[in-house]
């Protein structure tokens, strides 16, 4: 066995050169790309961490905004409910007031209508009563005598004011109306009784008016003195329907 020092030296140099070669062309580039990939992975992880933190922060912000919106919404709902209640109460009050007013108006209208109806029917009833009375009086045999109404007429004239009495017949003949034509005696009786009451003769004009039913009526420009069934019935009807 021998030891070749040249070979030993050359192999030593070869080993050193090979170490340099592989360090230069193998280990350094490969380790570099591994380190680069690790750095990229770390950067990606850091970025992902940062993104996750940002996402968490954004989520927190979103949740906060959501909570604020929910609070605002609750406040708005509460206010809206309060406003709705207020408006409801107002509307109810107004409606109640309107209803009360409408009810009062309706009651007033009803009262008015009822009063009008009452007056109407009272008038109708009075008219009917007068008509019935007139028809009944018309059916009396011979009718009512005119002479029976003379005292009442003279009495009413005597109750007139003195000035009115003095003017009767001064501006033309006074008109004496009767339901049926007066006879000469009856006309004379009326003229005599007036002369006796007024103290002077009064010119008279006698007119027949069926609407008087019965009785006498003295008509002058300044006064009308009635003593007829028609006037009595009208007075009665006026009392039955006093507002008409």
């Amino acid at each position: 066995m021998s030891f070749d020092w040249w070979t030993f030296g050359l192999q030593t140099v070869n080993a050193v050169v090979l170490v340099w070669l592989l360090a230069r062309f193998l280990f350094r580039p490969v380790a570099g790309i591994i380190a680069e990939r690790q750095a990229a992975a770390h950067a990606a992880l850091d970025q992902a961490q940062a993104d996750r933190a940002a996402a968490a922060e954004a989520l927190a912000e979103t949740q906060k905004a959501k909570d604020a919106l929910a609070a605002d919404r609750a406040t708005l709902i509460t206010e809206a409910r309060a406003e709705a209640d207020r408006q409801k109460q107002q509307i109810l009050a107004e409606a109640r007031a309107d209803a009360d007013k409408a009810r009062a108006d309706a009651a007033a209208d009803l009262d008015r209508q009822r009063a009008a109806e009452t007056q109407h029917w009272h008038a109708e009833a009075a008219t009917l009563a007068v008509d019935i009375s007139a028809r009944l009086l018309d059916q009396l045999p011979g009718g009512a005598r005119a002479v029976d109404f003379v005292p009442g007429l003279i009495d009413a004239v005597s109750k007139l004011p003195k000035a009115t009495q003095d003017r009767i017949g001064t501006e033309g003949p006074a008109i004496v109306r009767s339901a049926k034509p007066l006879t000469g005696d009856e006309q004379a009786l009326v003229a005599d009784q007036l002369q006796a009451t007024l103290g002077r003769a009064v010119p008279l004009t006698f007119i027949t008016d069926d609407s008087l039913i019965a009785g006498l009526e003295l008509d002058t420009p300044h006064a009308v003195v009635r003593n007829t069934f028609r006037s009595d019935l009208d007075r009665i009807a006026g009392r039955i329907a006093p507002d008409d």
């Binding site: 070979t7 070869n14 050169v17």
Partner: peptide, 18 residues
């Protein structure tokens, strides 16, 4: 310098690896 077979083979390995 005497070049022996191991040196030549080593050169070949170096060349191949490099």
């Amino acid at each position: 310098v005497a070049i022996s077979a191991p040196v030549v083979v080593t050169w070949g390995i170096m060349a191949g690896l490099g």
